[in-house]
Every structure is written in structure tokens, then in C-alpha cells.
Write a protein that binds this DNA or RNA. Structure first.
Lengths: 220, 220, 220, 220
DNA sequence: GATGAATGAGGCTTCATTCAT
DNA sequence: CATGAATGAAGCCTCATTCAT
């Protein structure tokens, strides 16, 4: 019922394992370094995708050698795992909150749209990876939670859309599932061209899109 | 004025330059083998993208060794080039015809949407490659024509959208360029999940999308 | 005692073999075609060396496909064999004639120098191949005759030089073998920079070199 | 003004850019391994030339896998670059010193000859590569400095020869440029047959050659 | 005699990963 | 924690050669 995140936090987290007990400070520091590296990797993934980014790229960005990364992470995949699970964790939590908050289907959909656009900037890397490397990741056991999460998200959207149709708010002649997919894609593909600091921020994009989504581009 | 396609049709045609005139049959046969290989490659590109597909994958699919591919093509890139340029050739021609045919902006936009959805099936490979490998391709001299073509397409869409606004047909409060991008992406990203033989064919998708695009999902 | 040339003249020459007896005209024609191909190959070998020239290069130059070359030659090596053995055949014959003609050692050496420079133009390919690919060729059974020929040539030079020393014509304090090697290399390396049609032709080069060789560059 | 050497010293030095200062020992050790590999490669290049030596040959000689070489070098070419630029660096410096030291043209030429013969042993690889692979290298941007260096060397020789003619020391009826070329070739081609430990060392070769060069082989 | 297609060995290079120091 | 060195699999491509048609 709660968020399905990836499992292992990788190396060193197995506390009892080595018998060595590090002081709180040490742990925190290690964690900071780790997170710093994840952020650097994320930046590269956001630019080029997961497969196109080499561990050497990441290491160079951090000023270390590629082998040294393996003190912090089991594998390249565990880095992206961290990024993706954090993204999905936040997204699911926010989505769930929006659904639980309730309101009219229009309000729910609006909230979901705003949440999705809101992830565009803070989670560029995760979204880029999903766009570029989905095919590669989806078949791996380790990333099964991605598919699960997608299904959960879909469920929320489709429910909201269908509810809107039931209450006569949304047109009967649209397909909820298909519509969801198109909305989802439209929003996330924007990661390819959206550059922070442009004419519109992600909130602006969201409002613009909501207008088109609800009422179309034709004047009435 | 005419279609911007890639240049070289690659190997073989120039190997034995001589003035000898081969019978139609020979040429056609050579062409057939080549096109067969291109089709096989396209199928793989459509499934996995360009970079994720190895020349060995392609060769294995054809039942030959990877080196043997180079009897027919200069490089892996020349294969994808063939696929992409054929796609863009058709797309541009169809788009241009639609624009020249004229009609109300709504009619033009409808035509463009239908054309785009119409490419989804016959050009799955090209569209997949563009989704997955755009970053890799766009920086290469050889594929400069892709950027050019994209710009041309954008111009057509933005013109049509702006024209619709001028004539009062389309809302003033939407951004033509932004709207174009979202439409474009929405359509082409569909290549990821669209499977021929499902509930809706691409024409169905197009009509569905047009409804939402023009009038939104809200009842009026 | 007589010239050691390469053995097989390659495909088809084995007369009795196939039982087929071709008319004289056919033979001659085939021969012409063959020699034409050898000449084309020689031109390429002269420009780039043996190993750096591909059979495709040769075929393209002839306006045919590389596989078709194998109707005329057993292998790439048999082409170069033909070139080299023809060169050595001529060279040895000329050298032998010069030695047999007799005269003072100075006259003999002069003749040998002139002969060597004289091969520069008509046998550019063979000489280039020897400069570039000697290492590759010398270890092959098939080209054992090259080493043999080199030894024979060396014998003639060293004899002439030693004879000159005996008769008091040449300085006692030079090493005949060493001197021979330097002369030989100096002449043949010239194939790298000699371009027909320049200030000096190969005869001019020979005379210039003879001056330096016999009397040095210092005024007396 | 100073020596024209190649640019990049290749990999590793920039991998972990940071400001960290490594102890002398580390640097030196890294350098040692690298130089060891370069020496192994040089040995092979000296035997077979650059193109005829494969990276697998080099790796096998070092007892590692071919891919592992790329931990130390960017490419096969960067190895040969290192060898060649070191050779030319030394050669040019020594030549320049000889010219600046001055003396009669005869003394200058003697010095240049001795320097050139002196490179034969320590720089066998570089000289072999130049003999065998010059054609391949000369067209590459990266090795443009080779051509430049050759021109500079030629300039020194031709000046010295011409000066000798002006002062009446050297015969008027020889062509300085042509003579230079022949001297150059004579010396460097010796790399093909010179084996250290023979009757004459390179100093002996130099003295022998100087005798012939200055006074010829004829007794006066 | 030539084509068109293929082979098989081998070329240089990249990359995630491991591990002794 | 990091380095430096290495692995091993895989990537794209080249080339001499063979052979059915």
C-alpha cells in the first residue's frame, strides 16, 4: 500500500555486516558524499540519458576515477535506481495526497497535472531516463517497481477521468485510458525541450496545458 | 522546394563504375536484398532504438555475419539514415501537400494531425529512433537534415495555429509554438505504446486526439 | 645460375590441367587483360605499398568488383609476385650483362649505379613494395627468391668494389659490404621522393650520385 | 623557436583533475608503467613498423589484454606519437645545437651526420616507423609536426651545404637539396640492417660514411 | 569473366566492473 | 576513500577470399 521503492541502499548500509560501527557523523558525511555523487550523476543522466552516460563521465564530473565510484555504489544501475525511486516516491506520495484530498474530478485532474509538471525541474534526470531508457530498464527485475508505479499512477488518472465522465463533467466520447496516456506523455516529453528560465516556468506550462486539455484550442 | 533527403545511397552502386549497363532485373534484385535488410534493421530499431541495436543484432536477424552487412551498407549510420530520410521525405511531402491544399486552419491542423498519426505504423522505426536517439544524431553533420526538416515542420504548424488565432477560430490565450510542441510530442511518443491491432487503429487515435485537442475533455 | 623468378604464373596457366586448350588468340587476350590489371595494381602499390593497397582498391581501379580479380590471380600476393619477379628478372639480367661486359671496376660500378637508377621509373611499384613491405614478404616461402636475388646482387657489387681496392683504384679504408648497402639504399629510397618530370631525370640523378660517390663533395 | 613536439601526453593525467597533489612517488610510478609500455611498443614498431603492429601484439608483449592498453593511452596513434615526438625533439635540439656551435661547414655537416647516426640505436622505433609508415602518418593532422620538423632539418642541412659551396669548400657541381636527401636517406635507411653489436657501432658507421661523403671512394 | 553475396578472422576501441595497494 | 591497473565482453568496421549464378 505504501510507496514501492527500490530495495537496497547499496554498499555499506548493511550495518551489522562489517561489525564496524560508525559514529553518526561519519554516516552523515558518507551520506552527503553519496548524495552529492547522485546529484552529479543525475545532472548527466538528465543531459544524455542513462545508457549514454558512462561511469567515467560521472567520475570525472566528481573529480575522481571511475573505479572509486564503486566505493559508493554497487553498480551504475544502483545510481539510477536511487534517482528513479526517489522520483517515484515523491510523485506517488503527491499524487496520492491529491487523490485523497478529493474535490471534483476536474480539481483532481488539475492537481495531477500540476504535480506532474512540478516534477519536471526537480526530477529532470529521472524523467529523462524514463524517456530514453525505459526499454532498457523495464525488463530488469530490479526495476520492476517502475512498472508497478506506472500502473498505480494510471489507476489514479483513469479513475479520476472516469469519475468525471460519470458525473457528466467530462465528455463521454473520450477513452480514459487513452486520454491518460496522452496526457502523461505530453507532460513528460516536455523534459526534452523545457529549459528553466524561459518564457514560462513549469507552473505556467501547467496552466497553459490545462486550458487546452479542458477546453481545447477552439474558441466557443 | 523538394524533399530534403539524405545524400548517399551508399555502397555498391559505385563500386564497379564502368559504363556497363545492367539489366533491370539485376538492379532490382540488389535493391530487394538491400531493402530487405533495411526492413529487418528497422524492425529492430523500432523495438530498441538505434544505439541499443547492434550490427550483430541486425546481421543475426538476417542470418548472416555482421561483417557481411558492410557489403550492403557503409555503416550502421547509413542504414538509419535511409530509414530516417525516407520517413522525413514522406512526412514533408504529405505535410506540404496538406498546407497547399489549404482550407480553414482547423482543416489544415486536422490534416497535419492525421498525417502524423498516419506515419506511426509505417514508420515506427524512424519515429522510435527519433525518440530515443535524437540526442546522438542531432550533432552529426550527416543528420543535419533532420534539424532542418523539424524546423520546416514547425513552421507549418505554427503558421496554421497562428492563422487560426487571427481568424478568431483558435483561442488567443494559447502559445502556438508551445502548443505545436506538445501536439508533436504527444503524437510521436505514442509510438512507444501503440501496438497495431489494438482497440483503435491510428486513424481512431487521430480522431480521438482531434476531439480533445479542439474541444477539450470538458463537456460544454 | 640463371634468374630465379617466382614459380607459378597463376590461374589458368597450368595448361594440361583442365584439358581445355585455348586458341592462341584467347591466350593472348587473357594475357593482355592480366597484364593490364597488373599494371593497375602496380600503380597503386607504387603509391601506397603492397599492404596498404586493398584488393578492392585494385578492382575499383579496373572497374570491376574485387571478387572478379580472382579469375585472374590466385591471390593478392600473386600479383605482387609478378611485379617483383619481373623487376628482379630485369635487374639481374642487366647487372649480369654489366659485369660480363667487364671494364675497370670504376666502369662496372658506374654501370651498376646507372642500371639501378634506371629501374626507378619503370619499376616504381616493385621498388616501393620492397621499401615498404620487405619485412612482410621476406619471411614467406613464396618470396624466398627475393632474398636469393638480393644476395646475388650484393655479390656483384662487393666483388667490383673489392676489385677496385685490389687494383688501387678505390680506397682501402672503406668496407665493401657496408659501402654496397649504403649505395643500394640511397638509390632505392629515392623512389619515395623522385617524381618524373622534375629538374633531373633518373640519368641526371645517377650522374650526380656518381660524382659524389667517387670523389666526395669536398673540392680537391 | 623551441622544439616542435606533439601536444597531448594523453590519458590519465586529466582524469581526476582536482587540485590534489600526488606524492612524487605515485607520479613517477605511473610514469614508469607508461614508459615501460611505450618501450615495449617501440620494440615492436622497430621490428615491424607501426601499421603492421597490432595493439594485441603490444598488449601480449606486456602480458595484458589489448583493451587494458587504453588505460594508459588514448589510441595506438598516441603511442607512436610519443615515440616520434621524443625522437624529433631530441634530433632537433641536437641539430640546432650543432648549427649554433658553428665552425666550418665541414664541421657542421660532420656534426649533423654524427648526430643522425647517433639516433639510430636509441630511436630505432621512430626511424623505422618513419621509413615504413610515413605515407600513412603524413596526411594526418596530428602528425603535421613531422613534416614541419623535416622541413626544419632540411633547412639546416641545405644551409650548411650551400655555405660550404660559397666558401669554396664543397664542389659547386652538386645540388645541395638533392645531396641532403641522399645523405638523409642513406643514414636512416640503415636502420633496416643495422644490428647493434656488429663489427661497427653507429660511431664507426658515421666515420665511415663521412669519409665517403667528403672524399668519395676513389683514391686520389 | 563478372557479379553479388557471404565468410571468418582480425583490426581498434569502449565500457562496466574488480581489486590490490 | 581513492588510485592505478587490469579484465572481459562487446562494439563497429575492414579485408582477403570463396562461390553460386
Amino acid at each position: 500500500m505504501t510507496t514501492t521503492t527500490s530495495s537496497g541502499r547499496a554498499k555499506g548500509s548493511g550495518d551489522a555486516a562489517g561489525g564496524r560501527r560508525r559514529a553518526r557523523g561519519g554516516q552523515a558525511l558518507a551520506s552527503e558524499r553519496r548524495e552529492h555523487l547522485v546529484r552529479l550523476a543525475a545532472e548527466l543522466f538528465a543531459r544524455k540519458g542513462f545508457q549514454a552516460t558512462t561511469v567515467r563521465d560521472i567520475a570525472k564530473e566528481a573529480g575522481i576515477l571511475s573505479g572509486s565510484l564503486y566505493h559508493h555504489f554497487d553498480s551504475k544501475e544502483s545510481i539510477v535506481d536511487e534517482i528513479l525511486s526517489s522520483f517515484f516516491g515523491e510523485l506517488m506520495a503527491a499524487n496520492r495526497a491529491a487523490v485523497e484530498r478529493g474535490g471534483t474530478p476536474r480539481e483532481v485532474i488539475s492537481a495531477l497535472v500540476r504535480i506532474a509538471f512540478g516534477t519536471l525541474e526537480p526530477h529532470r534526470a529521472a524523467i529523462t531516463v524514463m524517456q530514453n531508457d525505459w526499454n532498457y530498464l523495464k525488463h530488469q527485475e530490479r526495476f520492476a517497481y517502475l512498472t508497478k508505479a506506472e500502473d498505480d499512477v494510471e489507476e489514479m488518472w483513469v479513475s479520476a477521468l472516469a469519475a468525471g465522465q460519470t458525473t457528466g463533467l467530462f465528455r463521454e466520447d473520450i477513452d480514459p485510458k487513452l486520454t491518460y496516456r496522452m496526457i502523461r506523455d505530453t507532460i513528460w516529453v516536455a523534459v526534452r525541450w523545457f529549459k528553466p528560465g524561459g518564457r514560462l516556468d513549469t507552473e505556467g506550462l501547467a496552466e497553459h496545458y490545462l486550458k487546452v486539455l479542458f477546453d481545447g484550442i477552439v474558441t466557443h
